[in-house]
Design a protein around this nucleic acid. Sequence first.
DNA 1: GGCTTCGGACTGAACGTTCATTCCGAGACG
DNA 2: CGTCTCGGAATGAACGTTCAGTCCGAAGCC
Lengths: 209, 209
Amino acid sequence: MAANASMSEPFSMTQTEPEKRRAIVRATIELVAERGFHATPMSMIAARAGVGAGSIYRYFADKEILIHETFAEVSARTHEAMLDSYPRDASIRRRYEHFFLRMSHFFIEHPSDFGFLRQYFDSPFGIALRRDKMMEQECRGRDDESLSCLIEEGIASGLFKKLPPLVHISIIFGGLVAVAREHILGFVTLDTPMLQIIADACWDALARH
Amino acid sequence: MAANASMSEPFSMTQTEPEKRRAIVRATIELVAERGFHATPMSMIAARAGVGAGSIYRYFADKEILIHETFAEVSARTHEAMLDSYPRDASIRRRYEHFFLRMSHFFIEHPSDFGFLRQYFDSPFGIALRRDKMMEQECRGRDDESLSCLIEEGIASGLFKKLPPLVHISIIFGGLVAVAREHILGFVTLDTPMLQIIADACWDALARH
DNA sequence: GGCTTCGGACTGAACGTTCATTCCGAGACG
DNA sequence: CGTCTCGGAATGAACGTTCAGTCCGAAGCC
Protein backbone atom coordinates (compact mmCIF):
# COMPACT_ATOMS: atom_id res chain seq x y z
CA MET A 1 0.00 0.00 0.00
CA ALA A 2 2.74 2.41 1.01
CA ALA A 3 5.13 0.89 -1.52
CA ASN A 4 4.76 3.73 -3.94
CA ALA A 5 7.13 6.44 -2.74
CA SER A 6 7.63 8.01 -6.13
CA MET A 7 6.49 11.51 -5.43
CA SER A 8 3.19 11.74 -3.56
CA GLU A 9 1.62 11.05 -0.19
CA PRO A 10 -0.66 8.04 0.32
CA PHE A 11 -3.75 9.89 -0.87
CA SER A 12 -4.28 11.86 -4.05
CA MET A 13 -1.75 13.48 -6.29
CA THR A 14 -2.87 17.05 -5.75
CA GLN A 15 -0.47 17.33 -2.81
CA THR A 16 -3.33 19.02 -0.97
CA GLU A 17 -4.27 15.76 0.75
CA PRO A 18 -3.71 16.53 4.42
CA GLU A 19 -5.75 19.76 4.19
CA LYS A 20 -8.77 18.18 5.82
CA ARG A 21 -6.77 16.29 8.35
CA ARG A 22 -5.15 19.50 9.42
CA ALA A 23 -8.50 21.23 9.71
CA ILE A 24 -9.73 18.40 11.91
CA VAL A 25 -6.69 18.56 14.18
CA ARG A 26 -6.98 22.33 14.47
CA ALA A 27 -10.67 22.13 15.33
CA THR A 28 -9.92 19.48 17.92
CA ILE A 29 -7.27 21.64 19.57
CA GLU A 30 -9.53 24.66 19.73
CA LEU A 31 -12.62 22.90 20.96
CA VAL A 32 -10.88 20.71 23.52
CA ALA A 33 -9.04 23.77 24.82
CA GLU A 34 -12.29 25.69 25.15
CA ARG A 35 -14.61 22.96 26.39
CA GLY A 36 -12.66 19.90 27.47
CA PHE A 37 -12.49 16.45 25.93
CA HIS A 38 -15.80 15.01 27.08
CA ALA A 39 -17.73 18.17 26.29
CA THR A 40 -16.76 18.30 22.63
CA PRO A 41 -18.73 15.91 20.42
CA MET A 42 -17.26 14.58 17.23
CA SER A 43 -20.10 16.29 15.38
CA MET A 44 -18.91 19.63 16.73
CA ILE A 45 -15.33 18.96 15.66
CA ALA A 46 -16.58 18.07 12.19
CA ALA A 47 -18.64 21.24 11.97
CA ARG A 48 -15.77 23.48 13.09
CA ALA A 49 -13.40 21.76 10.67
CA GLY A 50 -15.91 22.14 7.85
CA VAL A 51 -16.06 18.44 7.03
CA GLY A 52 -18.70 15.77 7.26
CA ALA A 53 -19.01 13.84 10.49
CA GLY A 54 -17.87 10.65 8.82
CA SER A 55 -14.75 12.15 7.29
CA ILE A 56 -13.01 12.30 10.62
CA TYR A 57 -12.98 8.50 10.64
CA ARG A 58 -11.10 8.48 7.36
CA TYR A 59 -8.11 9.95 9.20
CA PHE A 60 -8.55 8.74 12.78
CA ALA A 61 -9.85 5.37 13.89
CA ASP A 62 -11.84 6.80 16.80
CA LYS A 63 -12.07 9.74 19.15
CA GLU A 64 -9.37 8.49 21.47
CA ILE A 65 -6.86 8.15 18.67
CA LEU A 66 -7.79 11.57 17.37
CA ILE A 67 -6.96 13.01 20.78
CA HIS A 68 -3.66 11.16 21.05
CA GLU A 69 -2.47 12.15 17.58
CA THR A 70 -3.53 15.73 18.17
CA PHE A 71 -1.55 15.70 21.38
CA ALA A 72 1.50 14.37 19.55
CA GLU A 73 1.36 17.28 17.12
CA VAL A 74 0.87 19.93 19.78
CA SER A 75 3.57 18.37 21.90
CA ALA A 76 6.02 18.39 19.01
CA ARG A 77 5.28 22.04 18.27
CA THR A 78 5.82 22.92 21.91
CA HIS A 79 9.15 21.12 22.19
CA GLU A 80 10.28 22.66 18.96
CA ALA A 81 9.46 26.14 20.23
CA MET A 82 11.27 25.47 23.47
CA LEU A 83 14.40 24.02 21.90
CA ASP A 84 14.66 26.53 19.09
CA SER A 85 18.02 28.29 19.43
CA TYR A 86 18.46 26.76 22.88
CA PRO A 87 21.85 28.00 24.20
CA ARG A 88 23.07 24.53 25.02
CA ASP A 89 26.44 25.68 26.31
CA ALA A 90 25.45 28.86 28.12
CA SER A 91 25.25 29.27 31.87
CA ILE A 92 22.53 27.61 33.88
CA ARG A 93 20.90 30.96 34.45
CA ARG A 94 20.81 31.80 30.77
CA ARG A 95 19.45 28.41 29.82
CA TYR A 96 16.80 28.71 32.52
CA GLU A 97 15.73 32.07 31.22
CA HIS A 98 15.61 30.81 27.68
CA PHE A 99 13.35 27.99 28.78
CA PHE A 100 11.06 30.14 30.88
CA LEU A 101 10.65 32.94 28.37
CA ARG A 102 10.23 30.70 25.34
CA MET A 103 7.69 28.64 27.15
CA SER A 104 5.64 31.55 28.43
CA HIS A 105 5.69 33.29 25.07
CA PHE A 106 4.64 30.14 23.31
CA PHE A 107 1.76 29.55 25.70
CA ILE A 108 0.57 33.12 25.45
CA GLU A 109 0.80 33.22 21.68
CA HIS A 110 -0.84 29.82 21.25
CA PRO A 111 -3.61 29.77 23.80
CA SER A 112 -5.41 26.88 22.13
CA ASP A 113 -2.32 24.69 22.19
CA PHE A 114 -1.86 25.72 25.80
CA GLY A 115 -5.43 24.87 26.71
CA PHE A 116 -5.28 21.56 24.89
CA LEU A 117 -2.09 20.54 26.67
CA ARG A 118 -3.54 21.41 30.06
CA GLN A 119 -6.64 19.36 29.34
CA TYR A 120 -4.55 16.45 28.13
CA PHE A 121 -2.18 16.38 31.08
CA ASP A 122 -5.05 16.58 33.52
CA SER A 123 -6.78 13.62 31.92
CA PRO A 124 -6.09 9.96 32.64
CA PHE A 125 -4.27 9.87 29.26
CA GLY A 126 -1.73 12.41 30.36
CA ILE A 127 -1.19 10.87 33.76
CA ALA A 128 -0.64 7.42 32.27
CA LEU A 129 1.80 8.96 29.80
CA ARG A 130 3.77 10.57 32.57
CA ARG A 131 3.87 7.34 34.51
CA ASP A 132 5.26 5.56 31.48
CA LYS A 133 7.83 8.26 30.85
CA MET A 134 8.95 8.10 34.43
CA MET A 135 9.42 4.32 34.29
CA GLU A 136 11.29 4.60 31.04
CA GLN A 137 13.56 7.30 32.38
CA GLU A 138 14.40 5.29 35.48
CA CYS A 139 15.49 2.30 33.43
CA ARG A 140 17.18 3.90 30.44
CA GLY A 141 20.36 5.87 30.88
CA ARG A 142 19.82 9.58 31.28
CA ASP A 143 18.59 11.19 28.08
CA ASP A 144 18.50 14.91 27.41
CA GLU A 145 15.08 16.00 28.82
CA SER A 146 16.39 19.52 28.91
CA LEU A 147 14.64 21.04 31.92
CA SER A 148 15.14 17.99 34.09
CA CYS A 149 18.85 18.02 33.29
CA LEU A 150 19.16 21.71 33.90
CA ILE A 151 17.69 21.33 37.36
CA GLU A 152 19.95 18.44 38.27
CA GLU A 153 22.94 20.36 37.04
CA GLY A 154 21.92 23.33 39.18
CA ILE A 155 21.51 21.18 42.25
CA ALA A 156 24.83 19.41 41.71
CA SER A 157 26.64 22.72 41.34
CA GLY A 158 25.16 24.04 44.58
CA LEU A 159 23.28 26.81 42.78
CA PHE A 160 19.85 25.37 43.52
CA LYS A 161 18.22 24.28 46.73
CA LYS A 162 18.54 20.63 47.63
CA LEU A 163 15.08 19.37 46.76
CA PRO A 164 13.80 16.55 44.56
CA PRO A 165 14.12 17.83 40.98
CA LEU A 166 10.45 17.13 40.41
CA VAL A 167 9.63 19.64 43.13
CA HIS A 168 11.71 22.29 41.41
CA ILE A 169 10.02 21.49 38.13
CA SER A 170 6.59 21.65 39.73
CA ILE A 171 7.22 25.03 41.29
CA ILE A 172 8.52 26.50 38.05
CA PHE A 173 6.01 24.91 35.76
CA GLY A 174 3.13 25.41 38.16
CA GLY A 175 3.89 29.10 38.42
CA LEU A 176 4.51 29.48 34.72
CA VAL A 177 1.29 27.78 33.73
CA ALA A 178 -0.77 29.62 36.33
CA VAL A 179 0.58 32.97 35.23
CA ALA A 180 0.07 32.23 31.54
CA ARG A 181 -3.47 31.16 32.29
CA GLU A 182 -4.25 34.40 34.08
CA HIS A 183 -2.99 36.31 31.08
CA ILE A 184 -5.05 34.26 28.63
CA LEU A 185 -8.16 34.65 30.75
CA GLY A 186 -7.55 38.39 30.76
CA PHE A 187 -7.03 38.80 34.49
CA VAL A 188 -3.56 40.28 34.01
CA THR A 189 -1.60 41.51 31.02
CA LEU A 190 1.94 40.24 30.64
CA ASP A 191 4.43 41.90 28.32
CA THR A 192 8.02 40.85 27.77
CA PRO A 193 9.61 42.89 30.59
CA MET A 194 7.01 41.58 33.02
CA LEU A 195 7.70 38.01 31.95
CA GLN A 196 11.40 38.60 32.53
CA ILE A 197 10.66 39.79 36.05
CA ILE A 198 8.47 36.74 36.67
CA ALA A 199 11.20 34.46 35.35
CA ASP A 200 13.61 36.09 37.81
CA ALA A 201 11.12 35.66 40.64
CA CYS A 202 10.73 31.96 39.92
CA TRP A 203 14.50 31.65 39.72
CA ASP A 204 14.65 32.95 43.27
CA ALA A 205 12.46 30.03 44.34
CA LEU A 206 14.96 27.59 42.87
CA ALA A 207 18.19 29.25 43.98
CA ARG A 208 19.95 28.94 47.31
CA HIS A 209 20.41 32.26 49.11
CA MET B 1 -31.96 29.03 51.50
CA ALA B 2 -31.85 29.40 55.28
CA ALA B 3 -35.21 31.16 55.50
CA ASN B 4 -37.19 28.38 57.19
CA ALA B 5 -35.82 28.10 60.70
CA SER B 6 -38.93 26.82 62.49
CA MET B 7 -37.69 23.39 63.54
CA SER B 8 -37.00 21.08 60.63
CA GLU B 9 -35.31 20.91 57.27
CA PRO B 10 -37.48 20.91 54.16
CA PHE B 11 -37.78 17.14 54.03
CA SER B 12 -38.97 14.55 56.55
CA MET B 13 -38.99 14.64 60.29
CA THR B 14 -36.79 11.65 60.88
CA GLN B 15 -33.76 13.93 61.21
CA THR B 16 -31.92 11.43 59.03
CA GLU B 17 -32.79 13.55 56.01
CA PRO B 18 -29.41 14.94 55.08
CA GLU B 19 -27.78 11.49 55.32
CA LYS B 20 -28.50 10.71 51.70
CA ARG B 21 -27.74 14.19 50.58
CA ARG B 22 -24.36 13.93 52.18
CA ALA B 23 -23.68 10.61 50.50
CA ILE B 24 -24.58 12.15 47.15
CA VAL B 25 -22.31 15.12 47.68
CA ARG B 26 -19.47 12.88 48.78
CA ALA B 27 -19.89 10.62 45.76
CA THR B 28 -19.96 13.66 43.50
CA ILE B 29 -16.71 14.98 44.94
CA GLU B 30 -14.95 11.67 44.55
CA LEU B 31 -16.12 10.89 41.07
CA VAL B 32 -15.64 14.36 39.66
CA ALA B 33 -12.16 14.43 41.17
CA GLU B 34 -11.31 11.09 39.58
CA ARG B 35 -13.01 11.45 36.23
CA GLY B 36 -14.07 15.02 35.61
CA PHE B 37 -17.51 16.55 35.40
CA HIS B 38 -18.58 15.41 31.96
CA ALA B 39 -17.28 11.87 32.43
CA THR B 40 -19.32 11.12 35.55
CA PRO B 41 -22.94 10.20 34.83
CA MET B 42 -25.63 10.82 37.36
CA SER B 43 -26.26 7.09 37.46
CA MET B 44 -22.68 6.55 38.60
CA ILE B 45 -23.04 9.14 41.31
CA ALA B 46 -26.22 7.43 42.47
CA ALA B 47 -24.52 4.03 42.53
CA ARG B 48 -21.50 5.28 44.48
CA ALA B 49 -23.78 7.08 46.94
CA GLY B 50 -25.91 3.97 47.34
CA VAL B 51 -29.17 5.65 46.34
CA GLY B 52 -31.54 5.33 43.43
CA ALA B 53 -30.92 7.40 40.35
CA GLY B 54 -34.08 9.39 40.91
CA SER B 55 -33.30 10.22 44.52
CA ILE B 56 -30.62 12.69 43.54
CA TYR B 57 -33.35 14.87 42.06
CA ARG B 58 -35.06 14.99 45.40
CA TYR B 59 -32.13 17.03 46.70
CA PHE B 60 -30.78 18.78 43.60
CA ALA B 61 -32.82 20.17 40.74
CA ASP B 62 -30.32 19.07 38.09
CA LYS B 63 -26.70 18.13 37.55
CA GLU B 64 -25.49 21.69 37.28
CA ILE B 65 -27.00 22.65 40.62
CA LEU B 66 -25.56 19.52 42.18
CA ILE B 67 -22.12 20.58 41.02
CA HIS B 68 -22.52 24.14 42.26
CA GLU B 69 -23.78 23.13 45.68
CA THR B 70 -21.06 20.54 46.00
CA PHE B 71 -18.55 23.22 45.15
CA ALA B 72 -20.01 25.49 47.80
CA GLU B 73 -19.50 22.80 50.44
CA VAL B 74 -15.97 21.95 49.39
CA SER B 75 -15.10 25.59 49.15
CA ALA B 76 -16.42 26.26 52.65
CA ARG B 77 -14.43 23.36 54.08
CA THR B 78 -11.29 24.62 52.37
CA HIS B 79 -11.67 28.17 53.64
CA GLU B 80 -12.41 26.87 57.08
CA ALA B 81 -9.24 24.78 57.05
CA MET B 82 -7.20 27.72 55.87
CA LEU B 83 -8.60 30.20 58.35
CA ASP B 84 -8.55 27.88 61.35
CA SER B 85 -6.30 29.46 63.98
CA TYR B 86 -5.08 31.97 61.44
CA PRO B 87 -2.56 34.22 63.22
CA ARG B 88 -4.26 37.42 62.16
CA ASP B 89 -1.84 39.70 63.97
CA ALA B 90 1.43 37.85 63.34
CA SER B 91 4.12 38.91 60.90
CA ILE B 92 3.61 38.67 57.19
CA ARG B 93 6.06 35.78 57.05
CA ARG B 94 4.25 33.83 59.73
CA ARG B 95 0.87 34.41 58.16
CA TYR B 96 2.25 33.35 54.78
CA GLU B 97 3.60 30.15 56.23
CA HIS B 98 0.36 29.41 57.98
CA PHE B 99 -1.47 29.82 54.72
CA PHE B 100 0.94 27.72 52.67
CA LEU B 101 1.24 24.88 55.13
CA ARG B 102 -2.46 24.68 55.98
CA MET B 103 -3.35 24.70 52.35
CA SER B 104 -0.86 22.05 51.30
CA HIS B 105 -1.77 19.80 54.22
CA PHE B 106 -5.44 20.17 53.45
CA PHE B 107 -4.96 19.31 49.80
CA ILE B 108 -2.80 16.32 50.58
CA GLU B 109 -5.12 14.99 53.23
CA HIS B 110 -8.25 15.59 51.16
CA PRO B 111 -7.26 14.58 47.66
CA SER B 112 -10.85 14.29 46.48
CA ASP B 113 -11.67 17.80 47.60
CA PHE B 114 -8.48 18.93 45.92
CA GLY B 115 -9.32 17.17 42.67
CA PHE B 116 -12.87 18.48 42.69
CA LEU B 117 -11.72 22.06 43.18
CA ARG B 118 -9.22 21.80 40.37
CA GLN B 119 -11.88 20.45 38.05
CA TYR B 120 -14.29 23.16 39.07
CA PHE B 121 -11.90 26.06 38.63
CA ASP B 122 -10.80 24.77 35.24
CA SER B 123 -14.39 24.58 34.03
CA PRO B 124 -16.43 27.44 32.60
CA PHE B 125 -18.27 27.52 35.95
CA GLY B 126 -15.14 28.34 37.85
CA ILE B 127 -13.94 30.91 35.37
CA ALA B 128 -17.28 32.69 35.38
CA LEU B 129 -17.23 32.65 39.16
CA ARG B 130 -13.80 34.23 39.27
CA ARG B 131 -14.86 36.88 36.81
CA ASP B 132 -17.82 37.75 39.01
CA LYS B 133 -15.68 37.86 42.12
CA MET B 134 -13.20 40.14 40.44
CA MET B 135 -15.92 42.58 39.37
CA GLU B 136 -17.44 42.54 42.80
CA GLN B 137 -14.10 43.15 44.47
CA GLU B 138 -13.28 46.07 42.22
CA CYS B 139 -16.54 47.84 43.02
CA ARG B 140 -16.98 47.03 46.68
CA GLY B 141 -14.58 48.31 49.25
CA ARG B 142 -11.79 45.95 50.14
CA ASP B 143 -13.01 42.86 51.95
CA ASP B 144 -10.83 40.42 53.85
CA GLU B 145 -9.76 37.85 51.17
CA SER B 146 -6.87 36.87 53.35
CA LEU B 147 -4.20 35.91 50.82
CA SER B 148 -4.87 38.85 48.55
CA CYS B 149 -4.56 41.19 51.51
CA LEU B 150 -1.42 39.56 52.71
CA ILE B 151 0.24 40.05 49.34
CA GLU B 152 -0.76 43.68 49.11
CA GLU B 153 0.49 44.30 52.60
CA GLY B 154 3.80 42.70 51.67
CA ILE B 155 4.16 44.81 48.57
CA ALA B 156 3.25 48.00 50.41
CA SER B 157 5.82 47.29 53.10
CA GLY B 158 8.55 46.72 50.52
CA LEU B 159 8.96 43.09 51.54
CA PHE B 160 7.64 41.68 48.28
CA LYS B 161 8.58 42.35 44.69
CA LYS B 162 6.60 45.02 42.92
CA LEU B 163 4.33 42.89 40.74
CA PRO B 164 0.56 42.71 40.26
CA PRO B 165 -0.75 40.84 43.31
CA LEU B 166 -2.44 38.36 41.02
CA VAL B 167 0.96 37.38 39.68
CA HIS B 168 2.24 36.71 43.17
CA ILE B 169 -0.86 34.69 43.93
CA SER B 170 -0.48 32.71 40.71
CA ILE B 171 3.14 31.85 41.40
CA ILE B 172 2.37 30.71 44.93
CA PHE B 173 -0.83 28.90 44.17
CA GLY B 174 0.45 27.45 40.93
CA GLY B 175 3.46 26.00 42.66
CA LEU B 176 1.48 24.81 45.64
CA VAL B 177 -1.13 23.07 43.54
CA ALA B 178 1.44 21.52 41.21
CA VAL B 179 3.45 20.17 44.11
CA ALA B 180 0.40 18.80 45.90
CA ARG B 181 -0.67 17.12 42.70
CA GLU B 182 2.67 15.39 42.28
CA HIS B 183 2.37 14.07 45.80
CA ILE B 184 -1.16 12.80 45.27
CA LEU B 185 -0.20 11.14 42.01
CA GLY B 186 2.65 9.45 43.85
CA PHE B 187 5.49 11.02 41.90
CA VAL B 188 7.03 12.53 45.03
CA THR B 189 6.41 12.11 48.74
CA LEU B 190 6.04 15.25 50.80
CA ASP B 191 6.28 15.22 54.58
CA THR B 192 5.98 18.21 56.88
CA PRO B 193 9.64 19.28 56.84
CA MET B 194 9.71 19.10 53.05
CA LEU B 195 6.56 21.21 52.83
CA GLN B 196 8.20 23.77 55.07
CA ILE B 197 11.17 23.92 52.73
CA ILE B 198 8.89 24.31 49.74
CA ALA B 199 7.00 27.09 51.49
CA ASP B 200 10.32 28.84 52.08
CA ALA B 201 11.29 28.39 48.44
CA CYS B 202 8.06 29.94 47.24
CA TRP B 203 8.54 32.76 49.70
CA ASP B 204 11.82 33.51 47.97
CA ALA B 205 9.92 33.99 44.72
CA LEU B 206 7.74 36.64 46.38
CA ALA B 207 10.38 38.44 48.39
CA ARG B 208 12.72 41.20 47.26
CA HIS B 209 16.37 40.34 47.67
C1' DG C 1 -11.71 16.10 -28.15
C1' DG C 2 -16.07 14.52 -26.46
C1' DC C 3 -18.38 10.88 -24.04
C1' DT C 4 -18.54 7.17 -20.74
C1' DT C 5 -16.77 4.51 -17.00
C1' DC C 6 -14.44 4.00 -12.85
C1' DG C 7 -12.58 4.56 -8.09
C1' DG C 8 -12.37 6.35 -3.86
C1' DA C 9 -12.77 10.64 -0.88
C1' DC C 10 -16.57 12.52 1.05
C1' DT C 11 -21.17 13.31 3.20
C1' DG C 12 -24.93 13.20 6.53
C1' DA C 13 -28.87 10.41 7.84
C1' DA C 14 -29.34 6.35 10.53
C1' DC C 15 -28.00 3.05 14.27
C1' DG C 16 -27.23 1.39 18.73
C1' DT C 17 -25.73 3.12 23.09
C1' DT C 18 -25.58 6.10 26.99
C1' DC C 19 -26.92 10.08 29.21
C1' DA C 20 -29.97 13.31 32.24
C1' DT C 21 -34.30 13.48 33.79
C1' DT C 22 -39.14 11.84 34.81
C1' DC C 23 -42.53 8.88 36.60
C1' DC C 24 -44.88 5.63 39.24
C1' DG C 25 -45.59 1.67 42.27
C1' DA C 26 -43.78 0.08 46.67
C1' DG C 27 -43.12 0.66 51.13
C1' DA C 28 -42.42 3.40 55.68
C1' DC C 29 -44.51 6.21 59.06
C1' DG C 30 -48.11 8.56 61.53
C1' DC D 1 -55.42 4.77 55.31
C1' DG D 2 -53.28 8.99 53.77
C1' DT D 3 -48.87 11.02 53.16
C1' DC D 4 -44.44 11.15 51.80
C1' DT D 5 -39.86 9.25 50.35
C1' DC D 6 -37.52 6.09 47.67
C1' DG D 7 -35.65 3.12 43.81
C1' DG D 8 -35.12 1.98 39.38
C1' DA D 9 -37.54 1.22 34.89
C1' DA D 10 -39.06 4.38 31.35
C1' DT D 11 -38.27 8.37 28.26
C1' DG D 12 -36.37 11.38 24.95
C1' DA D 13 -32.23 13.73 23.64
C1' DA D 14 -27.52 13.47 22.36
C1' DC D 15 -23.52 10.88 21.66
C1' DG D 16 -19.85 8.02 18.84
C1' DT D 17 -19.72 5.44 14.96
C1' DT D 18 -21.25 3.36 10.48
C1' DC D 19 -22.64 3.01 5.78
C1' DA D 20 -25.22 3.60 1.55
C1' DG D 21 -24.96 6.71 -1.51
C1' DT D 22 -22.96 11.30 -3.95
C1' DC D 23 -19.58 13.61 -6.20
C1' DC D 24 -15.53 14.61 -8.99
C1' DG D 25 -11.24 14.05 -11.39
C1' DA D 26 -8.73 10.60 -14.00
C1' DA D 27 -8.63 6.92 -17.37
C1' DG D 28 -10.51 4.45 -21.26
C1' DC D 29 -12.81 4.53 -25.61
C1' DC D 30 -14.46 6.29 -30.13
